[in-house]
Design a protein around this nucleic acid. Sequence first.
DNA 1: CTAGTTTCGGACAAACGAGTCCTAAATACC
DNA 2: GGTATTTAGGACTCGTTTGTCCGAAACTAG
Lengths: 147, 147
Amino acid sequence: MLLSQRCEYALRTALYVAAAAPGAYIAVREISSALGIPYHFLAKIVQTLTGAGLFQSMRGPTGGVALARPAARITLKDIVLAVDGPAVFRECVLGLPGCGDREPCPLHDQWAPARAEVGRMFGEATLADTAARIQAGGFRLANLAPA
Amino acid sequence: MLLSQRCEYALRTALYVAAAAPGAYIAVREISSALGIPYHFLAKIVQTLTGAGLFQSMRGPTGGVALARPAARITLKDIVLAVDGPAVFRECVLGLPGCGDREPCPLHDQWAPARAEVGRMFGEATLADTAARIQAGGFRLANLAPA
DNA sequence: CTAGTTTCGGACAAACGAGTCCTAAATACC
DNA sequence: GGTATTTAGGACTCGTTTGTCCGAAACTAG
């Protein structure tokens, strides 16, 4: 898979929070049941996002997590970088260290543009406009049959 | 990472074999030391490729592995499918099962074309023309400082 | 036929990711 | 102040991937 499970969960979580009322704190328990993500696992992922400065958290009743910045100023790439690091946007498709324009692997010329395109896609998509697509309808963030 | 370690090794191995004399059997030991891949691990990967009908093998001295078909008729996608399966070319970027044109995730419209582009790239690149780039020079299959 | 070399195929060990569990700290409500 | 609720953070288990090891089968050369 391109992204780790943690990262997929993180993206869906961030989109869920962004699609909710702005500024409101949302409990991790609610996100967990809404998206079908194991609660304790999600709690740790949310901690990562909070530690990265993307989320803001509040303990106690009425507590939860919220976006630390306006949704228009958080990109999907921010989420990926915080959870999986920059490897996805940099690594050689054959895993060769130092692969680049100077010491390319045989696939570099074809892979580098595709990789850049993926980076551009994640870098330009903000939580705001992606969440807007969800609210407009026709797009889903969770499995249809939760279980 | 996009491809598993086994798959990266498999691709480099296939390209190494394709770049060698056509039809000749190459010992796994030679590939291992040339590409810096752990021998016993590579042996099992080669077994997978042989079992998938992509490689042909011969035991004993002067034995080794060779391509089962002409290099022009084996694509990089064949290798990936044999080792990692079709998930890379099919899976939703958010990991949602059943994500498609009918039940799309919010990123489907952007991700599906990128994913298709990657599939096309691997499907159109044959071992023959990719190996030709290596022989023409300027491209490497192994790390510069093996150890 | 014998010895050496190579792949075959399984069992095994280590490292990592995914997921669970438990205690502590902070906050709201009574 | 006390209690319930929620995040914080660590330790832990489980499964997959990665990597190692060893004996058996097949083949070549003498």
